[in-house]
């Protein structure tokens, strides 16, 4: 095999790149490490915020035993955490389902059908993506109130079942699938819905994986909407629940971090499952083959 000739500059660039990437990795991973490590400490170890930061002592004394998992068990059993978890799963699953159905249907129409004002509608959808949730929260609140949905889980699901990003993603992907496949299906006797269900949907698996993970991430972490649109403790979701996590003794870092770790796990597992699809989905959507 012929090795390409590399000069000193090449190695220097490489070293600088690795230093930069390692720094970036440390910055990204440190909060997670602190969270996990703290979740295994005991309440006695922590007198204040400063004790949370990991020190050499932390690692020296650190060992996992059955006793150390008690934070997790306590966090789960404590108060309403189980309920928050359940609420979040319901909201996330239904929002994902809604996006899978409605985003793909809108994307199908925008990609495959010709109708008056199509470009304008697509432009509106793109423009909507640029408006932050903080701007929309008041009109959404008024609407939800008028629909008598205030303080229900539906109030958290309904405004999110169709999202601009999902429509954009799916439309771009559908655009890359040859139209002759639809036509072959039309000749075979398929309706619009059957073309979407049996032809485009299975081919667009990578884009759908991206849609699922993206929707799951954004929904799992919602905070502002449940803060405004719900009131009772029974209707809280994890993001809000964690932010308001307090014990009778003040801020309970140990249990709060154990709860956070539990909250992060499902989304982490989901991400690991779809990792390969996400990479191919993002690149395939961009390049027509």
């Amino acid at each position: 095999m012929i090795e390409p000739i590399k000069n000193k500059n090449f190695y220097l660039q490489r070293i600088l790149l690795y230093i930069f990437l390692t720094t970036l990795l440390i910055i990204t991973i440190t909060p997670f490490l602190i969270m996990v490590i703290t979740s295994f400490k005991t309440t006695d170890n922590i007198a204040g915020l400063r004790d949370i930061l990991p020190s050499i002592e932390t690692f020296k004394n650190f060992k996992i035993s059955r006793e150390t998992f008690k934070n997790y068990i306590e966090a789960w059993n404590d108060g309403m955490f189980g309920k928050y978890f359940y609420n979040t799963i319901i909201v996330t699953l239904l929002v994902i389902l809604g996006n899978l159905i409605f985003d793909t249907m809108v994307a199908y129409a925008l990609s495959r059908k010709e109708f008056y004002g199509k470009k304008l509608i697509f432009l509106f959808i793109l423009a909507r993506m640029m408006i932050p949730v903080q701007v929309l929260i008041i009109p959404v609140f008024i609407l939800i109130k008028q629909l008598n949905l205030y303080d229900t889980l539906t109030a958290l699901i309904l405004p999110n079942v169709v999202q601009g990003f999902g429509i954009f993603l799916m439309k771009q992907y559908f655009d890359g699938i040859p139209k002759s496949l639809d036509e072959a299906a039309i000749i075979d006797g398929a309706s619009d819905f059957q073309i979407l269900r049996y032809i485009l949907f299975p081919i667009a698996k990578p884009a759908i994986a991206v849609l699922i993970i993206n929707t799951a991430l954004s929904t799992w972490n919602i905070f502002l909407m449940p803060l405004i649109l719900t009131q009772s403790v029974e209707k809280r979701v994890l993001g809000l629940g964690l932010a308001l996590y307090k014990s009778q003794y003040g801020v309970d870092y140990v249990h709060s971090m154990a709860a956070s770790t539990i909250a992060v796990l499902p989304i982490l597992i989901l991400f690991l499952c779809f990792q390969n699809y996400i990479v191919s989905g993002l690149t395939k959507g961009a390049v027509k083959t």
Binding site: P178, S180, L181, E183, A184, A185, I186, I187, D188, G189, A190, I199, P202, I203
Partner: peptide
């Protein structure tokens, strides 16, 4: 009449086979 009711079949230039 829509294509499915015309009782025709078509072979496309790029075959248009369903890849999945």
């Amino acid at each position: 009449l829509p294509p499915k009711d015309r009782d025709i079949a078509m072979v496309f230039q790029n075959y248009a086979l369903y890849p999945h």
